[in-house]
Design a binder for these strands. Structure first.
Lengths: 78, 78
DNA sequence: CTATATTTGTGCGTATGTATG
DNA sequence: ACATACATACGCACAAATATA
């Protein structure tokens, strides 16, 4: 869930939520995270906000994005 | 480059810089100027400031903006 | 080879909130 | 009160890359 009234920007909330799913193993290494459209519906935010969140995850080194395919959880075990 | 400390507003400085590129032929008639995002990165300003600058160029009759496509240098030779 | 579906990339339009001078 | 400037967040449309039928 996301709180639009929070001082924490929505895109940060979304990024943190996805990061948590990576941390707890719900989203596994080398597997794609949900598509932008899927995340958009899940969190009920705009696609722009989702893309902002995913960009944050890339900056944090948690995922890599492949155009036309999707965004994948980075395997940091190797 | 842009000087945030100048008495000349940043959005005017950006508009003048783009106008100069049109005047010297760097940006050609019927061709798009760099996107808002590109200009934003070039000048290291916010998108709002870029849009303010482009609005100024429209008022000056130097460019036309096509929603969803881009902003084009007006051909004043015809 | 073509066509379609999916997904990300790009581009502009708009609105609101915050901060500063 | 006003202008400037930034950040956030919504929307729409189309392009490009990829995968598959």
């Amino acid at each position: 869930m996301v709180d639009p009234l929070s001082a924490v920007p929505v895109y940060v909330q979304v990024a943190d939520a996805v990061a948590a799913r990576i941390a707890n193993g719900d989203l596994e290494p080398d597997r794609p995270i949900p598509s932008e459209e899927h995340l958009r519906q899940d969190f009920e935010v705009s696609r722009g906000t989702v893309r902002h969140a995913v960009a944050l995850l890339r900056e944090r080194g948690l995922v890599v994005t492949v155009p036309g395919r999707g965004t994948y959880v980075l395997d940091r075990s190797q």
